[in-house]
Design a protein around this nucleic acid. Structure first.
Lengths: 350, 350
DNA sequence: GCGGTTTAGTAACTCGGTTTAGTTGAATGG
DNA sequence: CCATTCAACTAAACCGAGTTACTAAACCGC
């Protein structure tokens, strides 16, 4: 396959009987060399099949023309998650505009931190940094710009924030107004590495739920509020919901902390013959495209995922170009009421 | 953000009053240096916040610890496509196992070829190379291993092949056996850059359809066979199907060349009040997870997409490690009959 | 014919590391 | 006591480019 050493500028220089400098000029600074010699060099380069080594070029130029996405999970897990698909669409728009590539950097030996020193990129978008185990220090050392996304806010560290807490409070408020009091919360795995959602967003979402409950004098500890932690997959949403419905005092409303979970819940309720929203209401979070495809269409909290990726990318590009960007971008959520939520069923109000 | 030049090995060497070589040894070859000095160097490095430059390291090591995925489309388009999600899951499994990162390389100035020289990777997976406009030459020049996927077979170029032609022939045969003769084919955009599926697979799939039609003495030119080209999105599948059904002599079976299109077709038929498979049968291609979620569940041709990604990755890793791998991997398709296909409706047999 | 500017090309330095080939001084040994 | 080995460290070469500083020849006007 790649037998024979690859052709370097030195080889071209020898073959064209000029200095290596001349070869470099022929490619990068035509004015510095005579047309005749330039043509000869280019011809020889073509014949030999010379192509400048991108790594050497990156070293001297100090730029790789690529952005890194530091991920909290393996690539397979990320690719299965429609949330990341949306996020990467947004980030990809920036790459497209700027002509950049995107390096997906999964944890190395289960550690995000360990992966940082190896990535040859001009900047990092850090996704879902749960608790800082030295990642920030390592990133600072790397000396390249970075932005945090879906993480806890840290002083002095640029990050993109979303008003999740208010958003989910609004959603729960909506359910409470409809008369629901027996609530099940399908939560996400907490903290630990390899989790699908980090401490930060999860904590903020739970706080939002608590806020809304507080308004009607309830709390997360209320006996009618059940919180179960599950992995954020359709299958797990199905399983957890089936169990909840089979147990004592089943909920009249299910609040899932991700749309994928909510869709799994809808699957389960359909299979159980439970009418949504007639008997049980279901709500999600994110507003993925799937939310609008399922029947009944899902009531959810819209989070501008693509915009998040785009803003993170813009921020990074600006930082790379040396601008000190307007940090502290905050994106807003919106309650999207569709068909999966409705007034509490009379029989459930006991 | 990244103010102050970053700390280099030279800085550490000066601060620790040793040579740059000693610093390198302290990190890479502890035996070559005394414990005492090593500790001192490491301590100083820690204090100064030294981290070796990954690009310089890659240059001298000749390895970047990353694989490139050369894409035929912008990153946003790729990320919106569940097919790629599956493919990247498979490729990601290999990355995970080997501790590699994945560089997504979209076309540069609409040219796959132009993007090749800039990517700092140890090897390329080339996706959907329609017609070779010099990409192969450029890849050979780069001197790194590469594998083709979803492309036309080229002599002397390693590629992963899928028995698409036989697969779709089997599917169409299934429909013909059910009595269907009025067929609509939802095809994909042909060739041209920016297309969602390249010439190769599209050509093979159309050939497979022709094969099956030939068995019953029909061909793609038969007046009852309609072929429409649409972009591979749910919305386009919806639109195209609506139009077909509104036109004269609507089809009794819709063969979509991708599951996403087929799902769009199901949406359209549901909205039109057409029973599937009672009145019209629908079939797809790929067997994405979505195929099993929709109602009626989709009859489709399973293509081992994840396996494709995994095999491509394995091939690449083997090549990088200098092995001359068993090229010419062929993956097999399988007809998956679910609920969306059934016997032709009596009224349609005229 | 002479000082001064262009033009065309190269030697040498840079980027930030790794690696080979020495060098130095102390310990070993016959 | 002198040759040998070893330990600990460094100078210099290298990876493959880009870039600066300089030289030699050609050109220019007077």
């Amino acid at each position: 396959m790649h037998e024979g050493r690859r052709v370097t500028a030195k080889d071209v220089a020898q073959a064209a009987r000029v200095s290596r400098t001349a070869v470099s000029f022929a490619f990068n600074d035509p004015a510095r060399i005579s047309q005749q010699t330039r043509q000869r060099i280019l011809r020889v380069a073509e014949e030999l099949g010379y192509v400048p080594n991108p790594i050497a070029r990156a070293l001297v130029r100090g730029s790789t023309r690529s952005l890194g996405v530091l991920l909290p999970q393996d690539i397979p897990l990320v690719m299965e998650n429609p949330y990341y698909a949306q996020f990467l669409v947004g980030l990809g728009q920036v790459c497209d505009r700027e002509g950049l590539s995107l390096l997906l950097v999964p944890p190395l030996r289960s550690s995000m931190r360990d992966a940082i020193p190896y990535a040859a990129v001009d900047g990092f978008v850090v996704c879902g940094l749960a608790t800082d185990r030295g990642e920030i220090t390592e990133l600072r050392r790397r000396g390249v710009p970075f932005v945090l996304v879906d993480s806890d806010e840290l002083p002095g560290v640029p990050s993109i924030e979303v008003t999740e807490q208010a958003g989910i409070a609004e959603l729960v408020g909506h359910l409470l107004e409809l008369g629901h009091r027996r609530l099940a919360v399908l939560s996400l795995p907490a903290g630990g590495s390899g989790s699908s959602v980090p401490v930060g967003p999860l904590a903020r979402r739970m706080a939002g739920i608590a806020d809304a409950l507080g308004v009607v004098g309830m709390s997360l500890d209320h006996p009618d509020v059940r919180v179960v932690e599950v992995a954020s997959t359709r299958a797990e949403g199905y399983r957890a919901t089936s169990e909840l419905m089979a147990g004592p005092r089943p909920p009249s409303a299910v609040v899932a902390l991700s749309d994928i979970l909510a869709v799994g819940a809808l699957d389960a309720l359909r299979d159980l013959g439970v009418d949504v929203p007639g008997q049980v209401s279901v709500a999600g979070f994110d507003d993925l495209p799937e939310a609008n495809w399922v029947r009944p269409a899902l009531t959810t909290v819209r989070q501008p995922i693509q915009a998040k990726g785009r803003v993170a990318g813009d921020f990074l590009v600006a930082s790379i170009q040396g601008e000190r960007p307007h940090s502290g971008q905050v994106l807003h959520t919106a309650l999207i009421v569709r068909e999966s939520t409705g007034p509490v069923h009379p029989s459930a109000s006991g």
